[in-house]
Structures are given as C-alpha cells and as structure tokens.
C-alpha cells in the first residue's frame, strides 16, 4: 500500500478546505453587502428597523418563533411560496443585513413571515392572533400567548384605547379588558416591519407583481 500516504495526504488537505469554502469565503463574499437605493424612487432597501421593531426582533428570538415560522421566500418555480402570496419575489442575502440574529427558520408549522408586514398590517389582528390564535385562525396549532397581555378590570375612565376587541368564547370576564404589554407592542411592531419585496438588482420584482 505504498500509494496510501499520497491518498491520505490529498484527503487531509481537503479536510480543512470545507471550512474555508463554507465559512470563510461566504463571509468575504457577503460581508460587504450594503443597502440598495432604488434609482427611480430613492427608496432604500432594506430599511433599518425603528426602535420598537428592533426590540420586537429580540422578543421574536426569545419566544422562539423561528421554530415554527420561516423567514425566507423560495424562488419562482421552486415550491409555491410566491403563489401563496408569501412575497412578490424570492428573498436574497441583502434582505437580512440588518438582522442581529438571522432567523431563516427550518420548519413551516406556521406560514412564512418574510412579508407578513405587507400581508397583514393590521396591528389589532396581530394582537388578537397572539393572544389566542384560535380567534383569528380556527384550527391553528399555534399556542396562545396570553402572557404577552394583561387582563385587568376596566378602570373608571372606561375601556382603554388599545384594549383588544374580543367577542365570544375567548372574551375576558365581564368588566375586564385585555391590554397588550410593552413586549407585545414591540413584537407586533417587528412583525409589521417584516417586508422583503423591495425591487433589487439581484432580485427584481416582476412588473405584474409590482402593480398589485
């Protein structure tokens, strides 16, 4: 087996190279990505997140939303992400440059959220959905997040302006109201900021889509 050492030499050298290939090189290639400014509209994409939305991203991480929801739209013709209305184009590396922790996700127990801010911009819907998903989405297996809210007696001044409007089985006891905590407000601000449909040179939005 005199050729053995030569064979092993080749294999050993290639061992270290995967790390160069899969870690070092992408770091060099993608590390310099910046925001893109649209020549026509001067819109900047992706836009940096406002304070509440940035806090909300941290709550998204801490609550582990990533274990059921993805934040990546697959290309046209691959899966049915675009047909489901989850985005107007696929997501690309540039879409994630502002994310402190990139949470692409690997399970779609729930729908993709890359563009939930465009698909569902109504804050009230999000509050009701987080409080108990059965309210807005009967049959959902998403757990209730009542701990993000405060159920309290309605004060002398009457119902709070930000109290959730809940009817029927999930309504709070008489004389009580459900109010979002600061954490809920920040999380919803984050969700409403999730938009990845800006026109980019590497991922243009098709004209028919842009017109919608």
């Amino acid at each position: 087996m005199s050729y053995g050492p030569l064979l092993f030499l080749g294999i050993l050298l290639t061992l270290a190279s995967s790390w160069v290939g899969l870690v070092l090189m992408p770091h060099r290639q993608l590390g310099a990505l910046g925001q893109h400014t649209d020549a026509d509209t001067a819109a900047v994409h992706p836009s940096a997140r406002a304070g509440d939305a940035q806090q909300g991203a941290d709550h998204y991480r801490s609550l582990g939303c990533v274990y059921c929801h993805t934040q990546q739209v697959r290309p046209e013709g691959y899966g049915s992400d675009l047909e489901r209305g989850w985005g107007r184009r696929r997501t690309v590396s540039r879409d994630y440059i502002h994310d402190k922790t990139v949470m692409l996700g690997t399970m779609r127990t729930g729908p993709d959220l890359s563009n939930i801010g465009e698909r569902q911009s109504d804050a009230a819907w999000h509050y009701r959905h987080l409080y108990n998903p059965q309210i807005t989405s009967p049959g959902s297996i998403m757990p209730p997040h009542a701990f993000l809210f405060e159920t309290r007696a309605i004060g002398a001044a009457g119902r709070s302006t930000n109290a959730l409007v809940i009817e029927g089985a999930f309504a709070p006891p008489a004389g009580h109201e459900v109010v979002p905590t600061r954490r809920a407000e920040q999380l919803v601000a984050y969700l409403r900021s999730l938009k990845s449909s800006g026109d980019l040179p590497e991922a243009p939005v098709k004209k028919e889509e842009a017109a919608k």
Binding site: L9, L12, L13, L15, A16, W19, V20, L24
Partner: peptide
C-alpha cells in the same frame, strides 16, 4: 484555523 488545521493534519499523516 486555516493555517493550523492543515498543519495538524499533515503532522498527523
């Protein structure tokens, strides 16, 4: 690491 790993591997070989 890029330097260390191949060096260790070659030494092992």
């Amino acid at each position: 690491s890029v330097v260390l790993l191949p060096v260790v591997a070659l030494w092992a070989l």
